[in-house]
Design a protein around this nucleic acid. Structure first.
Length: 713
DNA sequence: ACCCCTCGAGTTCT
DNA sequence: CTCGAGGGGT
């Protein structure tokens, strides 16, 4: 702890602060606030008053607003709100933690292998090349990344979203399987180990008994127990939990540990990291499939939960050649066990109203345990789906969790249909606002036409607005939003930002409301405050325009740069003709339907008012102009044909990040056409016009290699 | 008029 | 995760 609250607050006005002094004070404030947070949330023993804490926080925010370069994702200002959950600092993985492609049967695995061979052939490698495979059980636990510096365990993190995880170093240290130090001469200076934290079934049972004996909630399954134990704020709690660890891959490394995956596993074991003794080096795919059968047969005798088998191409040079498709390695696949299927009764079908007014039927089920989790709801998608499966209320149905996550109704057990089972009558009115619900010709969904008068749609829009990918305001769940909406506290997004200032104007102040207190109210206000600065793409996404999701919002933000430019362009395009309209349609990825949906949104006066009102409350950050120093800076590029090492959208994002403009069609103003195999008219037109045509390899060479790749996942 | 791919929207549970 | 629809290419 450095300095007291009083000292920091009495410092010079922020406007007079020199950058160096600001940086120093910023660091001091962050440390101080984090310490107070820890005392407050972890030890439950604050050493400053709320007012003192607020003063520190305010000072930090002032500094950050004047010196935005000091704002980092792990600054306390960026993570207020989810108070108990944010006891962990965020950690950016040096190499992303990727996910695996799934195969659900042997045919899927053979497809995968065919893809590998095809790809290697196209890279003009010897097709008769031996493709050995490392197979090992896929453990149902929590993945983690451990960073060793100079052989010492320095930092451990959860997977998070694959790019940024949570710092759980202290908790990982308590696991006996995780060595403090890697032993051996060839340990790289820097080495990130990837692996799985898990719990033995037997230990899980004992833990649950102990939990029950102490009147604490039991865990649903070993995986949840492992996840819950790893995310304890108090490491001494984690220390008392029987966690284990297996290493299976690596991330960033100052030296590559071997020429093959198998060698890498042996090396990890030699350094003292536990690797799965059941892992097997298979000469070919048939041997790997036989391994799968054996593991499936042994499954119940293996002392921990597994949900399949992972296959990886053994040779690292081949892995590198194969590369990635949208965050997934092309050289690995997870062969999953079939999903567990369970019968239960369908008690009722209810209709939910989405933010676009879509009516979605949801099956209420007699609760059953499926794959270790109690399931009581399952989506039925739409009207046709109910008819296709002939689902009736009272039926016995087979339920599974798709990809082991989302519950779905597989089929009806007709033999068990009771005589009084009755077909579901799909409503033609919205259950929330009683407006007509219509199904457009050729569409699968029925939509409520209530729009602005439908409270369900309004609440869903607000939920979307505060959601993670939009304004990311923590501490406002479904219930709170609905309650605030019902009580007139928030009717439109801009109201959120006036919530603190007007607290108490509509009935009792927030802290006196049921379920709220001094602290939670303050946290919510702070979480909202922290979002007054927002990048343009998030702002656009948050509006909830039909057909405009994250990707399209980003596209629009990049195209128009600033909110004012976007706003003006949309107004100008509303005539559906002229330059602004043509410009909108010329964006690669936006056609008539999407463009029409955007303009429909801005045609509505209410929506324009909502946007303008919101714009007055927040500061929208323009999209930065990418640097022009790269080889393709300022050039116009067109992609055509199927690219091999990346999807077209990735290629496009990459090119744009390097300062190029990506167009959809070839003209004289095009600088480069990048043509994959199977390119047709565009490449021909480019040649006619004398535009440079590159193949993918030449293109990658031009922009400087495939730096997105990593040695392992 | 096709086919393929990507994106959007909706959903579950802890 | 899955389905349906939009966009773009042939």
């Amino acid at each position: 702890m450095t300095g007291s609250a009083g000292e920091s607050v009495a410092a010079a006005p922020v406007s007079e602060l020199a950058p160096d002094a600001a940086r120093a004070e910023h660091a001091r404030l962050v440390a101080e606030i984090e310490e107070h947070n820890r005392r407050y949330h972890v030890e439950d023993a604050p050493t400053v008053t709320d007012a003192e804490f607020d003063a520190l926080f305010l000072r930090l925010k002032e500094i950050e607003s004047r010196f935005p370069e000091l704002v980092t994702p792990d600054s306390p200002t960026q993570k207020v709100g989810a108070a108990p959950a944010t006891g962990f600092a965020k950690v950016r993985h040096l190499k992303p933690m990727l996910s695996l492609e799934n195969a659900f049967d042997a045919a899927g695995v053979r497809d995968f292998m065919a893809g590998v061979r095809n790809f290697l052939m196209e890279l003009r490698r010897d097709p008769s090349i031996e493709v050995a495979i490392v197979a090992e059980p896929k453990i149902d636990g929590v993945s983690a990344s451990l960073r060793y510096e100079g052989g010492r365990f320095a930092l451990g993190a959860t997977r998070g979203d694959g790019l940024v995880g949570e710092d759980v170093t202290a908790n990982l240290r308590t696991i006996a399987d995780v060595p403090d130090r890697l032993e051996g001469e060839d340990v790289p200076k820097l080495f990130e180990v990837r692996g799985e934290v898990y719990m033995l079934r037997e230990d899980f049972r004992a833990l649950n008994e102990a939990q029950r004996a102490e009147d604490k909630a039991a865990f649903a399954n070993p995986r949840n127990a492992a996840a819950g134990s790893l995310r304890q704020l108090d490491p001494s709690v984690t220390a008392g939990r029987p966690l284990r660890f297996f290493a299976y891959a690596w991330g960033e490394a100052s030296a590559v540990p071997g020429r093959t995956h198998w060698e890498m596993l042996e090396r990890l074991a030699a350094w003292g990291l536990p690797t799965n003794p059941r892992a097997k080096l298979c000469a070919d795919i048939d041997e790997a499939l036989a391994y799968y059968e054996r593991i499936a047969e042994e499954r119940s005798r293996i002392p921990y939960d597994i949900d399949g088998v992972v296959y990886k191409i053994d040779r690292l040079d081949l892995q590198e050649a194969l590369g990635f498709v949208s965050r997934r390695p092309r050289w690995a696949v997870a062969h999953k066990f079939p999903a567990e299927q369970v019968e239960t009764r369908l008690l009722a079908i209810e209709i939910q109203v989405g933010r676009t007014g879509a009516l979605t039927p949801v099956a209420r089920l007699e609760p059953v345990t499926v794959g270790g989790v109690v399931v009581s709801n399952a989506t039925l998608h739409n009207e046709d789906e109910i008819a296709r499966k002939d689902v009736r209320i009272g039926d016995t149905v087979v339920v599974q969790r798709a990809g082991d996550v989302i519950p779905q109704v597989v089929r009806v057990v007709k033999a068990k249909r009771p005589a009084d089972a009755r077909p579901f009558e799909y409503p033609d009115r919205c259950p929330a606002c009683d407006s007509l619900a219509v199904r457009e010709e050729g569409e699968a969904v029925r939509r409520c036409t209530g729009g602005l008068v439908c409270p369900a749609q309004q609440v869903e829009r607000l939920k979307h607005f505060v959601s993670r990918a939009a304004f990311d305001i923590d501490g406002l769940g479904e219930k709170q939003i609905a309650a605030f909406y019902d009580d007139g506290l928030i009717a439109k997004p801009g109201d959120l930002f006036r919530l603190a200032a007007r607290d108490g104007e509509h009935g009792a102040p927030l802290r006196d409301r049921e379920g709220w207190g001094e602290v939670s109210a303050r946290n919510l206000f702070a979480a909202i405050e922290a979002r007054r600065r927002i990048p343009l793409d998030r702002f656009i996404y948050a509006l909830g325009i039909r057909h405009v999701g994250q990707a399209t919002a980003r596209l629009l933000a990049r195209t128009y740069g600033t909110l004012d430019a976007f706003r003006a362009a949309m107004d100008a395009a509303r005539a559906r003709e002229g330059e602004a309209w043509e410009h909108l349609l010329s964006i690669d990825g936006i056609g008539k339907v999407v463009a029409g949906a955007i303009l429909d949104f801005f045609d509505e006066p209410h929506n324009r008012a909502v946007v303008d009102d919101l714009a007055r409350e927040v500061e929208v950050e323009p999209v930065e102009e990418p640097g022009a120093e790269s080889a393709i800076g300022g050039k116009t590029v067109v992609f055509t044909g199927t690219l091999e090492t990346m999807t077209r959208l990735e290629a496009k994002a990459r090119a744009e990040a390097l300062g190029a403009k990506v167009a959809g069609s070839v003209s004289r103003r095009t600088d480069y056409v990048v043509a994959g195999p199977g390119a047709g008219s565009k490449a021909a037109k480019a040649r006619d016009l004398g535009v440079t045509v590159l193949d993918e390899r030449e293109w990658l060479a031009l922009i400087g290699g495939r730096e997105m790749e990593e040695p392992n996942a």
